[in-house]
Simulated scan of single mutants.
Amino acid sequence: MGSAPLGGKAHALGMLAGVALDAVFADPRRGHPVALFGTAAAALERRTYGDTRAAGAVHVVLCVGSVALLGAAASRSRNPWARGAVSAAATWAVLGGTTLGREGAAMADFLEAGDLAGARGRLPHLCGRDPSHLEEAGLARATVESVAENTSDAVVAPLVWGAVAGVPGLLAYRAVNTLDAMVGHRNARYERFGWAAARLDDVANAVPARLTGLLAALGAPLVGGSARRAAAVLGRDGHRHPSPNAGRCEAAFAGALDVTLGGVNVYGTRTEHRPEMGDGPRPSAADIRRSVRLARAVGFAAAGIAVLVALRG
Rank of each mutant, 00 (worst) to 15 (best):
A256E: 08
R228V: 15
L211N: 05
E145W: 03
A196T: 11
A175H: 11
D258Q: 14
V176A: 06
R290A: 12
T39K: 13
M1G: 14
G184D: 11
V183C: 07
A295R: 12
R236A: 15
A113M: 06
G7H: 08
R78D: 10
P168H: 07
A196S: 14
V155M: 15
L62M: 14
N265P: 04
E149Y: 04
G101W: 10
R293T: 12
L21G: 14
V309E: 06
L170W: 04
L257Q: 10
N150K: 14
V24Q: 13
A10N: 02
A119N: 12
A216K: 13
M107R: 03
S152F: 01
L294R: 05
H32P: 13
L95D: 09
G14C: 03
R289E: 11
V24Y: 12
A220W: 07
R129C: 01
A88E: 11
R282F: 08
V86W: 00
F193K: 01
A119L: 12
N265T: 07
V223P: 05
L116M: 07
V259S: 09
G65Y: 09
T271I: 14
G224Q: 00
A40D: 05
V86G: 00
V64H: 04
A181P: 11
R289T: 12
E250I: 01
G50Q: 13
V86I: 12
G101E: 11
A217C: 15
L222E: 01
E112C: 06
A306V: 13
D115P: 02
A198P: 09
E135Y: 04
E103C: 06
G18T: 05
G2Q: 14
N265S: 13
G225I: 03
E136M: 08
L159K: 01
H32L: 04
H59G: 05
R199A: 12
F37D: 01
W161T: 05
A301P: 07
T48M: 12
G8K: 00
S66H: 05
H125G: 03
R228L: 12
G121P: 13
S226Y: 01
S66Q: 04
H133R: 15
V58G: 04
A108G: 03
H185Q: 08
R229E: 15
A204F: 07
G268A: 05
R141Y: 05
R102V: 09
A206E: 11
T271A: 04
S146V: 06
V34D: 04
T52F: 07
F253G: 01
G84S: 05
R236N: 08
V156C: 00
A82Y: 00
R141P: 09
A286R: 15
L294Q: 11
L69T: 10
A93H: 09
G65S: 00
M1I: 02
A43N: 08
E112G: 05
R186E: 15
S87M: 08
G56T: 01
A217Q: 08
L116I: 14
P275V: 07
A12W: 05
A310W: 12
R122H: 15
F253T: 04
F25I: 15
P158Q: 07
L171T: 02
D51L: 06
P221S: 03
L100A: 04
V67P: 02
T99P: 09
G166E: 00
T91M: 05
L111T: 01
F37N: 06
V309M: 02
N245T: 05
H59A: 02
R122D: 10
G194A: 03
L179E: 03
W81C: 03
M182K: 14
V160I: 04
A231R: 15
A68G: 08
G169A: 07
M107H: 09
A303F: 10
S66G: 06
